[in-house]
Structures are given as structure tokens and as C-alpha cells.
Design a protein around this nucleic acid. Sequence first.
DNA 1: TTGAAAGCGCTAACAT
DNA 2: ATGTTAGCGCTTTCAA
Lengths: 335, 335
Amino acid sequence: MGDRRPTMRDVAAAAGVSLKTVSRVVNGESFVRPDTAERVRDAIARLGFQRNDLARTLRGGGRTRSIGLIIEDVANPFYSQIARGVEDVARAGGRLVISGSSDEDPARELLLIRSLCERRVDGLLIVPSQTGDPRRRAELIAGTPAVFLDRPADDPAADTVLIDNLGGARTAVDHLLAHGHRRIACLVDLPEIFTARQRHQGYLEALAAHGVQADPALVRTGRHDVRGAGHAMTELLALPDPPTAVFAGNNLLTVGALRAIGAAGTRTALVGFDDVELADLLATPVTVIAHEPADMGRQAAELLEGRIRGDTGPPARILLPTRLVARGSGEIPPG
Amino acid sequence: MGDRRPTMRDVAAAAGVSLKTVSRVVNGESFVRPDTAERVRDAIARLGFQRNDLARTLRGGGRTRSIGLIIEDVANPFYSQIARGVEDVARAGGRLVISGSSDEDPARELLLIRSLCERRVDGLLIVPSQTGDPRRRAELIAGTPAVFLDRPADDPAADTVLIDNLGGARTAVDHLLAHGHRRIACLVDLPEIFTARQRHQGYLEALAAHGVQADPALVRTGRHDVRGAGHAMTELLALPDPPTAVFAGNNLLTVGALRAIGAAGTRTALVGFDDVELADLLATPVTVIAHEPADMGRQAAELLEGRIRGDTGPPARILLPTRLVARGSGEIPPG
DNA sequence: TTGAAAGCGCTAACAT
DNA sequence: ATGTTAGCGCTTTCAA
């Protein structure tokens, strides 16, 4: 079975024509007599020939018709929805998506970027990790069109699609304040992460706007997964003067907080950032700050598509809206 | 801006060495004087050179260090968990994952396969759509190692990783029967889909084993999304003699059924196939037939990795176990 | 309507 | 320790 894949040469030999004629048939070019084309197609089918796209792209100097997508974790619904939005746009543009999970590890991110650039993807869509050196990243990307999602790169010249984190967080906390809460806890992700900082800030701003003194004991930052959030929430509920409400800074933290509240059996109000599946069916349906991750993916991919096609306009900064979806958990009154 | 990307040639010229020396430095080969290597590295940095992987692979006759993954929909948690498992194994093998959603459309699937094969992915991981012509698919795949997930291809020579659908479904319905139910509804996906057929069959077998006469009016097949399942469930609950329990054939159908039951306000028992996020926190926590999608992805990817490396053993057929997770909804007694 | 020759950017094999 | 040559499989250019 040491037989290599058939090439156009092989097909040409089998069909008794020149290599160029095979190329014409494969690419649907004109100026081939129907019966010649037929013979070539026969040979292609007989040999099981499949054009080698690497060679084609190399010689054509053209596009690879692929884009790279770097997110934190495909298994997280937030990112997998983004990926789907991206794929839909990429498909329309005739491109495939090569996606990779950085796991928030800057080294892993750089590796992915390098790999993707060396493969000459037509463009890059990146949720930038925030602990690495932005300059190293920029160096690697240089020469490949790139759009950033969910978090800004340091680069002011880069196209970026963000969610209105500040506004969303403020809305969440406003809502809890409006329902009479004063001791409102805040659960957020690693402080390096832009969205976490913004949501934390939105929380503080909402309190300040209502003249409520923020209690640092009620803020837990640096929670990056369901378990971490659960532990933090359990601690908060065990406080001598526990919070009557909590703002959970993302989908994972919302799940963690819900588990902890359920385990503690308290009637703690909650508003979460990001919508979560089945939120409407919980014992107490979950009030959230909702937005459209797939739409973020689509918009970013469309921006990228434009750049790939040569758009040379000023950098775009898209801010996607959020909306409060009141379902019950955010409307629980203070104990 | 008409400047093309720098090549090894350009680097060689800039460093005053030959192309081959640049190649040696880039590939970390030995037999380069440290100071020469230094000069080359300088030139690389100055020009922003990045090796063209297409050319490298073409010449080396080697692997593209990528694998293709074709699933139904990345946004569905079941598939995104698979994707993550696949990615982890691919990463360990130094490969990237190019993934595409077929949306259960055979034409789209063929397009993806062709595209991926022409790009010379090292291997293919496929959740085969089941409405197309298996022979056309097999023809396209020929020459590229492939492993099938979640559903068998027609091809008995193909490596396949499946879930124990039959056993899982039987366990689910056994459980409901054991809790005293006799009128048990069944919600399953399109009958073309292997897993739907198996789960339907498991349902029937469990009833038969308990000597319970199956009522065709309680079976709704061909439900492929949350809404479809919701409508079907609403209809079932409106029956003159409604079911007291339901077996939901996958994660989406479980969600739809839960919504309908919630809306109808009945105390209908439910066991779902696939675990769902937050199932434990629902008003009535959801009993499910759980399994590990990520593990399915990993095992399939490992099988593929082996084939890529030349394993020539007989076709593998892996059957992954399920387990019943009793959380409440499956233990509701008949009304 | 068809074909021959050159070359995309790189690595393998062979000099030196 | 460094360079030269050939060629991966295709498309492009030019000739017939």
C-alpha cells in the first residue's frame, strides 16, 4: 500500500492528455473539448484523484480560504456560540474555521497564533488572553488581518467587538438596588480580564450612583470557574452579615453561585451576566443580563471578511448591547 | 503596501547567507555557527519572517498537522464538548482542528469532507449525517484516515465510537417503570438518525420486558429541536389519557419537554438522554442518562491518531457506557 | 483547443 | 559549517 496519492500528472497520463488539460477540467476552465473533458473526468474518478489544495494555494499565491479562531474554551457555551456565529459567516465567504482553545494561557495563545499564521490563514479572530505580552502577540500577528472579540487588544488600530460590560453590570446592580437590596455581593473573574474589570467597575458605579457604600468584604474577584464561584458564594453566605443579593459576573460564576445558594438554602437574589440554558426553568428562574454571543462572532467575522477583502477604513469598535431579562431571581426582596 | 511576505530567500539575502542556512536556523538544525545563526535570527526578526507552512508541507510530502472534525452544530453543548475532547488529543499530537457544522445536511457534509481532504488534513473525525448516500461519502474520504463518532457509517471497516444508546434508553424506561409508570411517552429525533432509532428501540424493549403494551399515541419521533419537542410534549399532555412520564431522547428534546411540562403545570415524570447544565438546580431536578461527550471526542481522536501513525489493526468499535443520574424528575410517581 | 516551461516557498540530498 | 541543486503538485505564462 505504499502508493502515494494520484497527482494531476497521473491523471494526465491515464487520460492521455497533458497536465494542463487536467488542470483546466478540474478548475472548470473553458477551451476543453467535451470528449476530452469526459476522458479526464473518467481518469479522475478511476484514480480517485483529489486536487492538492496546498500546492494550489502555494502556486496561486492566493488565499488558504481559512480563518483562525482563538477562544478560551470551545466547551464553554459562551464561546461555542461565538464559534457558530463565526462559522456561519466564514462559510458564506467560502472559508473554513480552524479553532483553538487558549485556556487563558498566553503561551498557548502565542503558539496558536504562530501556528495559524504559518499556515497562512486568511485572517485571525482572537479573544485575547490578558496575562501575556501584547507586543509579542502583535509581532506574530503582523501581516495577517485580525479582529479581536470580547476583549480589546492593547492595539488601538485593531478592529474590536465588545459587549457593553459596563452598562450591563450597572443595569444588573441597579435592578437589585431598585428591589431594595443594599448588601449586594459581586463575583467576578480574574482581574486581568478586561470583562471582569469592567463588570466589577459597573457594579461599583451602580452602588455609588445610588449612594450605597460598597463593602469590600462582599466582593470576590479572581473566580474563574464554577467551583471557585461556588466556594466564594458559600463563604459570602456564611458571613455574619451576609449579602441579600449577588451579581455574578459570567455564565460559569452564575452557575457556581446558584449551586451555593441552593446548597445553603437561602433566599438570596441573583442577577447573572450572560444568559444560561434552562435559566427559565430553575426553581427560581434566573434573572440575567443577556446578549448574543453568536452575533458577536458574526460581527467580528464580518469585520474580518472586510479586511481580508482589502477594506482599509479606520479601526472599527463595535459595542454590542445587553438587555436585562427578569425571570425571578433578581426580583427576590431582601430577606 | 504592495510588499509580499518575506521568504527565506529574502532573509538569506538580508543576512548574507544561503537559503539553506536560513532553513537550518529556522528548523533548529545543528551545524550552524552561533554567530551566523545570530545574524539570521536578526534578519528574521527585522523582516518579520514567518515560515510558510504550506510550502514546507508540500515539499516534505508530509503531514499538515491538522485534523478535520465534522459535527452537526458546534453551538450544541453535546458537540462542543466532543470538540473539546478532540482538541485536547489533537493538541497533544501537535495538530490543529478544523471543525465544521454539517447541520445534518448531507450536501453540506460532502462539501466539508471534500474541502478538508483537498487541504490534506491528516485525518477526519465525522459524526455522519444520515440522509445522504454513504457511498459518495466513502469515495471522498478514501485515502484519508477517518473515525466516526456517535453514529456508525455504513462502512464495517471504519473505526467507530458510539454511546450505549440501547442500554441507556432501556435503563431510563426501566427506571420509570420501576417507579410505577405505565403510560410513558417517548420523544425522539429524526428516524433517519441512528441514535434516535436505538433510543426508540430501547424504549420499546424496556416496555416489552415489563409486559407493558406500547401505546403508539405516546411516541413522537422526528423532533429535532427544542421547539419541536415542546410542541409534541404539549400535545401529549393534552391527550384524553395523557402520559404520566416521558423519556426524552436527547439534550434538546429534554429541554423542550421540560418547558412544555412547566407550562402545562403537570407533575409529569421525565428521564432525559444526555446530561444538561443546571439539571440539578431545576424546580424538579432532572434525572438523566449521563455519559461523557468529551471522552467520546478523546477516544475517537486517539483512534484517529493511531491510524495516522500507521496502526493497521482491525476496525475498532468502542461503545461508551451511560449511567443513570437520579435527581428527582425520574422519581415522580404516576399522578 | 492543447501543451511545454517556469516557478510558488520550502526541504532533502548531495556537494564543498 | 555552509552552499547548490532538484523537486513537492499545482497554476501561470506563453507557445503551438
